[in-house]
Design a protein around this nucleic acid. Structure first.
Lengths: 216, 216
DNA sequence: TCAAAAATACCGGTAAACCAGTAGATAAAA
DNA sequence: TTTTATCTACTGGTTTACCGGTATTTTTGA
């Protein structure tokens, strides 16, 4: 965490040039903030982070190459002192909590006002958790279904979940992945267990709910 | 349509201050463009339009108060010479076509680059239809699922689709609805046929896609 | 009222999914 | 290096889903 009277080195990771430009303009007013760079791909930022110190990252959790979730974890792993503020349009409670679980210090929806944005930046740098107004409301009023914990899947499990959603059967997947059908069955069983469901129908619904499979 | 050597009066309607700021910054570079105003609510813009001439509107089709679709139609009704360029993150073909149907002169996804944005503005002002690169691809190569007509389900079929999505098995549903399991099987078969899918996993995904089952 | 649509139900069969338990081989983290 | 997680694979089952065809009754709409 940088001292408050130091210059804060900030980076932006977002695949929308318009948003990047907007953030740059809003933050340019602040003398103690220096924008080190902006990136449209997660990998580019990780390369940058290897050779540069960054105090705070504004991170869009929907990126074309990597999931922002994974990127967040990678950032905190490589540079634990870097504060990550998630920036997104998703208003699902589960997603917000998930990104916090992955090490983010806060969550802003993209319709924040400039003053709100600056306040959140300051809070996050002080070591506090920062939420924009709308997000605070979402956090404080949880829905019933939100209580279900989001399971963490392994790489293979994610892959198989995707294939199942495409209607692939166990034998088909076994052939496609060059493993025994029995192996696929084990993965399927683990998926059912992790999601706490009884069959594929429920599995698909749960996965969609948690946005763990892309609709198309 | 304004002449190309006149100053173009432009307005922005978007509920994201960051995006507004970004657009302003990008368009400030262009001497022939003058930004008349930016609005976070559709109604505010309509009030403005009553007393002011606007050549071009950058319109976010997802607004808190009105649907951007309706707003677009209202704009064209009140001021037919005003060119509307839709700005959104939605990449569904049906949505793009719908907004064009409502009088928009083009569609940009928010991840457009600044050069792309300016090109589209110019094209739209020339009276052409303007699409950003990604949108062009969506328009020209419609996905398979776009062709699939939305099946019309009977009352019973909807009911069973819902129960299936809740993880109910055929015997369970038979008992719950006081009919033979064989009847349920017939309904299931008809559902698979109507959605043109091979198994429940695909069925759930198709149903979710067409919003025929509520995620929760 | 009469044809079409929907809901009901059956047979016989194959394929796939699901259950319970176990366990070796790797790969990654402590 | 040792532990832990992950991926792999098996046995031996039961249950459910899916396929193709057929057919009666009930409801509904033109």
């Amino acid at each position: 965490m940088p001292l408050m009277n130091d210059t804060i080195v900030l980076a932006i990771v977002d695949d929308h040039p318009i948003v990047i430009e907007g953030l740059r303009t809003l933050l340019k007013e602040e003398p103690q903030i220096s924008i080190a760079g902006s990136f449209t791909r997660g990998k580019d930022f990780m390369d940058f982070l290897q050779h540069n110190k960054v105090d705070l990252v504004l991170l869009d959790i929907m990126l074309p190459d990597t999931s922002g979730m994974d990127l967040c974890r990678d950032i905190k792993k490589m540079s634990p002192d870097t504060v990550v503020l998630a920036l997104s349009n998703h208003t699902e409670r589960s997603i917000i909590l998930q990104i916090l679980q992955n090490g983010a210090s806060g969550y802003l929806v993209k319709n924040v006002s400039s003053t709100e944005l600056l306040n959140c930046l300051k809070e996050a740098l002080k070591g506090e958790i920062a939420f924009s107004k709308e997000v605070k409301e979402i956090i404080t009023r949880p829905a019933q279904h939100e209580f279900k914990k989001v399971p963490t899947l392994t790489k293979r499990e994610k892959q198989i979940l995707q294939l199942v959603s495409q209607g692939k059967t166990t034998p088909m997947m076994a052939q496609e992945l060059n493993v025994s059908p029995l192996t696929i069955e084990t993965h399927r069983r683990n998926l059912l267990q992790k999601f706490d469901v009884k069959n594929v129908a429920e599995l698909m619904m749960a996965a969609v709910q948690h946005k763990m499979i892309t609709g198309i």
